[in-house]
Simulated assay, not measured.
Amino acid sequence: MVTLVQLEYVIAVDTYRHFATAAEKCFVTQPTLSMQLKKLEEELGIIIFDRSKQPVIPTDIGKAVIKQARSVLSEVRKLHDTIDFFQQKISGELKIGIIPTLAPYLLPRFIGDFVKTYPDLKVHIKELLTEEIVEYLHKDLIDVGILVTPLHEDGIIAKPMFYEGIQVYPHPEHRFANQSQVNMAEIADPEIWLLNEGHCFRNQVLNLCSYLNLQQHSLPIEYASGSLDTLIKLVDKEGGFTLLPELAVEDLPINKRVQVKTFIDSFPLREVSLVYARSFVKEKLIGILEQAIQQSIPEPMLSANRGTLVEWQ
């Protein structure tokens, strides 16, 4: 008879593509995990994983079994969540993925009060790029992501929460510093500092200023950062300018916040959403997380009507 434990082991091996790592994540020895998977394969009369490959990969029929195993385990979780819902319990685990351009500015606003309000809920948070959050959601490695949408991803549901303005942060001696506002066309300039590839905010900036056509960089260093804070420090030290989302601007000290410029002809926005897989059933948790985040955000940022949404894909 197929057991839920065996299905959990199948999912773990598919997720990590390594028997030792899967066993470690399941808190069992590798021989125990391997034995249970062998018993499952004998019960079904198939081979689920091709063990001759490194990393191990599922066979064609194994892929179908893995898909069904994920569905079965999702329904089991739904059973427990249904019981918790009727018992009005907020407990268990909530695994959150959040993009790096949001994490340092958003998490401190709400996470402390959130965990104090729900002490029986164990919250795990991991900083991930957008594509990693999508992958983790599909593999059930996280429950929910906090990222920038629209996402246009099959099987993923997005709940928009708030809208950050995109603003200009120039060096005090840059020409933008003496302007009350910046014309949108002016930011298509080789003196702009950018995030690394893989960051959705980088793509939004590229979409905003059509920077893709610029090949030359007039700054003394050719560098792409993985951190908004690093970009701010580079601007302060080396000159030029960068673009910042609104929560990062709110986090600046007052003497630096006065350097920030808005645009003359537009107020570009990025949409921040909670995202989760269609199979995720902890709707009550999603609701309380959404409420906690929105209560921590300045009220004007809750409206999409104050500007123009900039897509990043």
Rank of each mutant, 00 (worst) to 15 (best):
A22M: 10
K25H: 12
K25R: 14
C26S: 10
F27N: 14
V28H: 12
V28T: 14
Q30D: 15
Q30K: 15
P31T: 07
S34Q: 15
S34P: 05
M35Y: 15
L37P: 00
L37R: 05
K38Q: 13
K38S: 14
K39C: 05
E43D: 12
L44P: 09
I46L: 08
I47D: 06
D50F: 07
D50V: 06
R51T: 14
S52N: 13
S52C: 08
K53C: 10
K53P: 02
K53A: 10
V56I: 12
V56Q: 05
I57K: 12
T59G: 07
D60F: 10
D60Y: 11
I61G: 07
G62N: 00
K63G: 05
V65P: 01
I66H: 03
K67E: 07
K67R: 10
A69Q: 03
A69S: 04
A69Y: 01
V72M: 02
L73C: 02
L73P: 00
S74V: 00
E75T: 05
R77T: 03
H80Y: 04
T82S: 10
T82W: 04
D84F: 03
F85N: 01
Q87N: 14
K89C: 07
I90C: 08
G92R: 06
E93P: 00
E93A: 05
L94K: 04
L94G: 01
L94C: 13
K95H: 04
I96N: 00
I96W: 04
G97A: 10
G97R: 02
I99H: 09
P100H: 10
P100I: 10
T101L: 14
A103V: 04
P104I: 09
Y105G: 03
Y105T: 05
Y105L: 04
P108L: 02
P108I: 06
P108E: 02
G112R: 13
D113E: 15
D113Q: 14
V115K: 07
T117A: 15
Y118D: 02
D120Q: 13
L121Y: 02
K122A: 15
K122S: 13
V123Y: 01
I125C: 02
L128T: 00
T130W: 12
T130K: 10
I133K: 04
I133N: 00
V134K: 08
E135I: 12
Y136Q: 09
Y136E: 11
H138S: 11
L141I: 11
L141R: 09
D143H: 02
G145K: 02
G145T: 04
I146T: 11
L147P: 02
V148A: 06
V148M: 13
T149H: 01
P150R: 06
P150H: 01
D154K: 14
D154W: 08
I157M: 03
A158L: 09
K159S: 08
P160D: 12
M161D: 05
F162I: 12
